[in-house]
């Protein structure tokens, strides 16, 4: 038993896949809502030509939510030629579908239509539907704008949702598959750290996509030549890199920081746009705290104490603490003799 094996167990506990039995009912509801959207859009003369899951399900970085609210993010694609000029029309129709299905207060937000599902005794979840039109060159344009946005604020904005997924899932960017897996684990750890250490409205400003982009661009692999995987070191060095890379001090007296993380694909906008210095300062201080907490873990000799610190200060109850110090594995006088094994 090692600290790494505790991290591996933690990773397994928090990971959630789209195929998971736990969210079967949500998957089924999602399918049936999608059918209604297709019917409605067809009626309106702009049939749905494609729909795809966005977000963490497709990048395999979904984690079990702490407050048991599951997120689903599905892109709806219509044909460029058939799309109405005003993108808000499509968003209103989609909201009508959600209203007809008794969702309480579905909302038209700037990048998507969103709704919350609550029902006693059932899993609650949160739905996000961005709508795109796609032209003959496979270029996507996102329906941007709120219900009463002026004509300047509403538009079909060129965007690359599939390019973003490919960028996040680009295995070739990493030196090995082990490194790629480590990067994905760091995203899951950091999302749980956020959910545990940052609460309320502040938590909602720390977008997962922002975390994922920062982690990929700043990733510091920790796998030795012998293949020894060390997630705690990778986490420490990656967070150090992030702190050096995305923050600018905007107020030296009050220690205020701005953060800027650009999308790696079109429209290349800053993910934290409009929140810059509130989110930046919050982030900066939380990252500092995380780094000092990991330092404290590294200074500790006992495995139990290391795990207790990680549980209490960084990740919460899902981080496993062993009952005994390494006592369940045997120690040996020697590693064993490899006597020219052979076979046929």
């Amino acid at each position: 038993m090692s600290l790494q094996s505790q991290f591996m167990k933690f990773n397994e506990t928090i990971s959630l896949s789209w195929q998971d039995e736990k969210i079967k009912s949500i998957r089924e509801k999602n399918d049936s809502i999608l059918d209604d959207i297709k019917a409605k859009f067809k009626e309106e003369g702009y049939p749905v030509i494609d729909s795809f899951k966005q977000g963490s399900y497709i990048t395999n970085t979904t984690i079990e939510p702490l407050e048991k609210e599951y997120d689903i993010d599905v892109g709806i694609v219509i044909d460029y030629e058939k799309a109405p000029e005003n993108p808000i029309d499509t968003k209103k129709k989609l909201r009508d579908v959600l209203l007809a299905r008794n969702f309480k207060e579905p909302k038209i937000k700037k990048p998507c239509v969103t709704a919350q599902y609550f029902k006693a005794g059932e899993k609650s979840f949160h739905l996000d539907y961005p709508i795109y039109k796609k032209d003959q060159f496979n270029t996507y344009y996102l329906a941007v704008g709120k219900e009463h946005s002026s004509s300047d604020d509403r538009k079909w904005e060129e965007s690359d949702p599939k390019g973003l997924i490919e960028w996040l899932n680009d295995n070739d960017y990493f030196s090995s598959n082990e490194a790629y897996q480590q990067y994905k684990r760091l995203i899951r750890y950091m999302k749980r750290w956020r959910d545990y250490c940052i609460t309320g409205t502040e938590r909602k400003k720390i977008y997962s996509i922002g975390l994922a982009i920062m982690i990929k661009e700043s990733f510091a692999m920790s796998i030795s030549n012998d293949g020894d995987i060390n997630d705690v070191t990778a986490l420490l060095n990656t967070v150090k890199n992030i702190k050096n890379r995305y923050f600018t001090c905007v107020d030296y007296i009050n220690n205020k920081y701005d953060v800027k993380v650009n999308l790696p694909v079109k429209p290349y906008r800053d993910v934290f746009d409009k929140h810059g210095s509130t989110v930046g300062t919050l982030f900066y201080n939380k990252f500092d705290k995380l780094l000092s907490n990991i330092d404290a873990v590294n200074k500790e000799d006992s495995l139990i104490k290391k795990c207790e610190l990680l549980k209490k200060n960084c990740f919460g109850d899902d981080f496993p603490v062993p009952d005994k110090e390494n006592n369940d594995t045997k120690t040996f006088k020697e590693a064993g003799y490899i006597s020219s094994p052979q076979g046929a």
Binding site: S2, D226, D228, N326, T329, K330, T331, F332, K333, E334, A335, G336, Y337, I338, P341, G343
Partner: peptide
């Protein structure tokens, strides 16, 4: 054997030769 000896010492004499 080099890898084995390295892992053996790093693991506090826990990781050993298991087989092939």
């Amino acid at each position: 054997n080099k890898i084995l000896q390295n892992r053996f010492s790093k693991s506090g004499n826990r990781e050993v030769y298991l087989g092939t």
